[in-house]
Design a protein around this nucleic acid. Structure first.
Lengths: 148, 148
DNA sequence: TTAATACCTAGAGGTAACTCCAGGTCAAGC
DNA sequence: GCTTGACCTGGAGTTACCTCTAGGTATTAA
């Protein structure tokens, strides 16, 4: 299957501008053209784009993603570098997940805090609640004493 | 307890520049000064900073965080807005966690892919492996057929 | 055949969140 | 008193990642 840039934009939730920008930055190295210069994306390009988006979601800068794509083109000598890159990304993602869980705990505490405040009409109620009087899941997140 | 900006920078892993920038943007509204103009952070400022960082980790822009801080100063009329803000942040974080899990699945597949490729000296081996021959946790992530 | 729509390039502009610099002030130890 | 290191301000500069504009070409449907 082949796709125009507009179709790819729709499927990927990236703008046409962004796709052209990615190509210019070397993140879509295999996109072909018609005789008149119009881009033709094939399924391999779509897979490549998914990989770019995956790495981007791990917080990797575009220039490092390009580096990875260059390694892919360099052949088997770079297999270890590429493996190590994914080991690093895995460590980064696990760290992000742990951090996000802590963030969620704090947000959950705040949800309880403001639910109580709205119900009582003032912040005094949640502020004066002892940890032992809080609902089960909330107590732990309160231990770091966030109070505003 | 009171702290200089340098001490706060060390404890928070933010730079002195960033802390001054945050204050300028209204994210640290209560920091006091000595007679000669040097900032004195107290424990309440530290808690406020933690909240700013928590919201920032949910992907919230600094200007929206400032909006929240303005609501806090406005008093009890804004309790519902603040509660709703934390409901929204919770939804955002849950979405991020789901996305991050999918990203991790893909990364794990790639780790397996390159481990196999390094062991065999070429990408042909993992490329030609059927899902049924892959290790348990890897199979599912491969289903979306990422192959480069 | 013509109107509407989608595509093209080069390059300028924008935004968020810092980051740094010049030029100066302040505080603590010797 | 003097040096050293930490602090101050205003404002310019940087980075990453888009986002848009102008001016033009290509494709498609009526």
């Amino acid at each position: 299957m082949e796709y125009t840039i507009g179709e790819v934009a729709e499927r990927s939730n990236l703008s046409i501008h962004t796709l052209r920008y990615y190509e210019k930055e070397g993140l879509l190295p295999f996109v072909k053209r018609t005789a008149s210069g119009i881009r033709k994306f094939d399924d391999a390009d779509m897979e490549g784009l998914k990989m770019v988006e995956c790495l981007k979601r791990t917080g990797m800068p575009l220039k490092d993603i390009k580096q990875f794509l260059d390694w892919c083109q360099a052949g088997d000598e770079t297999l270890e570098q590429r493996r190590n890159l994914f080991y690093e990304r895995r460590a980064v993602v696990l760290e992000q997940m742990a951090e996000l869980q802590k963030t969620l705990d704090t947000i959950n505490y705040k949800c309880w805090y403001y639910e109580t405040a709205v119900r009582e009409g003032s912040e005094e109620a949640p502020k004066n609640t002892l940890p032992s009087e809080m609902p089960e899941g909330i107590r732990a997140s309160c231990e770091c004493s966030i109070h505003d």
